[in-house]
């Protein structure tokens, strides 16, 4: 169980990035955080990963407070961030340095097979396409078998076709060991394809504005009416989250009133 207790973050330069964020995430749950740019999504993810520490509040994983990066928490960034001087296989095995060589080789080969890049094991990262590089980054994060996997707009730099392909691929990989996924995105469709619950954030300071359940059956049909319904609801929430204060009280939208009847 991953818990955020009143997490706030103010940067040394005075930017108030997060204000009292509280969340409870069950093991194996897929949480997607959406919000306009500058709403503190990435800051929140970095606080959970231990790369940054909150100014106030705490992040707790299974009763242990997280202050530094942990082995149980993996992170995937917006860019693949592969180390250019290591082969693809060595990149995937980067987090397994303390394991015996035979085990490392076996787990790397298995992970590469699962992301469909076995034939690229010995090439340099520069020879991969953007989508392939991001798949290697996913394999690298999953190989140490983390309990929680954080993804910071992982597919935003890819073209639409590669993006949908990788979203499906991520779900396929997730289904294996079912880690908790927390994904940050500004792509609403991506949020609905992946999430069990969607959190819409609003900026200045970053706060959770609305929680929207997205418990559609998997695999999800991007064309279905239910999908479309959740999409409109998220879009409406996003719209309101970015609106000026005068409009924030006006929370009843068509989507809201119809929330109970979408099926």
């Amino acid at each position: 169980m991953l818990t955020l207790e009143n997490v706030s973050k103010t940067y040394p330069n005075g930017v108030h990035a997060l204000e009292k964020i509280s969340l409870e995430v069950k093991p194996g749950e897929v949480i997607v955080i959406v919000g306009g740019s500058g709403c503190g999504k990435s800051t929140l993810l970095r606080a959970i990963s231990g790369l940054d520490t909150p100014s106030r509040g705490r992040v707790v994983l299974d009763g242990v407070e997280i202050k530094l990066p942990q082995e149980q928490i993996g992170i995937i960034f917006q860019e693949p961030r592969l180390l250019p001087w290591l082969s693809v296989a060595d990149n995937v095995g980067f987090g397994l340095d303390n394991r015996p060589r035979a085990e490392r080789r076996e787990r790397v080969a298995e992970a590469l097979a699962r992301v469909g890049l076995s034939d690229k094991a010995d090439v340099w990262p520069r020879e991969l396409s953007g989508g392939q590089a991001q798949r290697v980054a996913i394999a690298r994060a999953l190989v140490p078998r983390p309990q929680v996997l954080l993804l910071d707009e992982p597919f935003s730099a890819l073209d639409a076709f590669t993006r949908t392909d990788l979203q499906d691929h991520l779900l396929y990989l997730w289904a294996d060991t079912r880690p908790t996924l927390i994904l940050v995105t500004h792509d609403v469709e991506e949020a609905i394809v992946l999430a069990d619950r969607i959190f819409v954030m609003r900026p200045r300071p970053g706060q959770i504005f609305e929680e929207i359940p997205a418990d559609l059956p998997r695999p999800r049909d991007r064309q279905s009416a239910a999908f479309d319904f959740v999409k409109r609801r998220v879009l409406a929430a996003l719209d309101r989250s970015l609106a000026r204060d005068a409009r924030i009280d006006d929370r009843k939208t068509d989507a809201e009133t119809g929330a109970a009847m979408w099926w």
Partner: peptide
Amino acid sequence: RKLVEVGRAFRLSPVA
């Protein structure tokens, strides 16, 4: 900095 951050995420010691 982004690559250094990868090292931090994998909990590398200063020597590593």
